[in-house]
């Protein structure tokens, strides 16, 4: 991390010129390594944040379902975490966890919790009472009922939560560039600092593409695991 964060620290010239076009295609071949590195870091940060978030949310949702009185405190806390401004959250952790991946991951994870907890709870609430009653009445037993009946029915909601959490996190990772762990966001910030538009365009363009791709991927995944929702009686 460099000392100066201000824009234009090493200005080439801010105007869009032939020397500094919005996108110079040769940059892809010259800087393949750093672009791939940024992309990989972006994916790593996104997936680990959502992965950790899912584990924590799963546990929180389980607690909320088991003990009804915890629903309020859990949604309240996760809602509070969700509204912490990202710049403030990343910044405020630096003194404690330094410029490390941890500093980036903690806020990213916290931002996923509300989305995931809400959707997991919605998913399990969507299981019709009659279906649970029938499962009990047939002697499926609690764990079998939860795993083979309730979870599959809740799955579209959970996957949709993952979808929202993931694309949101892709966007937030770019902001983590301000503490040096931004994946593609570093290309954006770097480009802004040097007023060098090619890396900015590549970083921004790829992060948008990544978000849209992951969005589509989860859409397909959601359809793939819920074949029963596609065919309806007409």
């Amino acid at each position: 991390m460099t000392g100066a964060i201000g824009i234009g620290a090493g200005v080439i010239g801010t105007a869009v010129t032939n020397r500094n076009p919005i996108l110079r295609w040769s940059y892809f071949t010259e800087q393949t390594e750093s672009i791939v590195e940024a992309l990989v870091q972006h994916l790593q940060l996104t997936l680990s944040a959502v992965g950790i978030g899912l584990i924590i949310s799963g546990a929180l949702a389980a607690i909320a379902m088991k003990y009804q009185w915890t629903v309020g405190p859990i949604t309240g806390t996760t809602a509070f975490l969700y509204t912490i401004p990202s710049v403030a959250f990343f910044g405020v952790l630096v003194p404690y966890t330094g410029n490390s991946a941890i500093t980036a991951i903690i806020p990213l994870v916290c931002f996923t919790l509300l989305i995931l907890v809400t959707n997991i709870l919605d998913g399990f609430r969507a299981v019709p009472v009659a279906v649970k009653d029938a499962a009990d009445g047939m002697g499926l037993g609690t764990s079998r009922r939860v795993l083979t009946v309730e979870l599959p029915i809740a799955m579209p909601y959970i996957i949709n939560g993952l979808r929202i959490a993931t694309v949101t996190t892709v966007g937030l990772v770019t902001v983590a560039a301000i503490i040096g762990y931004g994946g593609l966001g570093r290309l954006i910030l770097d480009g802004l600092r040097r007023a060098f538009w090619t890396p900015l365009t590549i970083g921004a363009g790829l992060s948008i593409l990544l978000a849209l791709l992951l969005d589509l991927m989860f859409y397909w995944l959601g359809n793939a695991v819920t074949p029963w929702t596609r065919r309806k009686r007409t």
């Binding site: 105007a15 919005i22 949101t168 892709v170 937030l172 365009t201 970083g203 921004a204 978000a211």
Partner: peptide
């Protein structure tokens, strides 16, 4: 709404900077 949600704000703003400058 889905696509709107997928677009990272920082990236969009960054992309717009050179456009705005031009």
């Amino acid at each position: 709404v889905n696509i709107g949600r997928a677009i990272p704000t920082f990236a969009i703003a960054g992309l717009l900077v050179p456009v705005s400058l031009r």
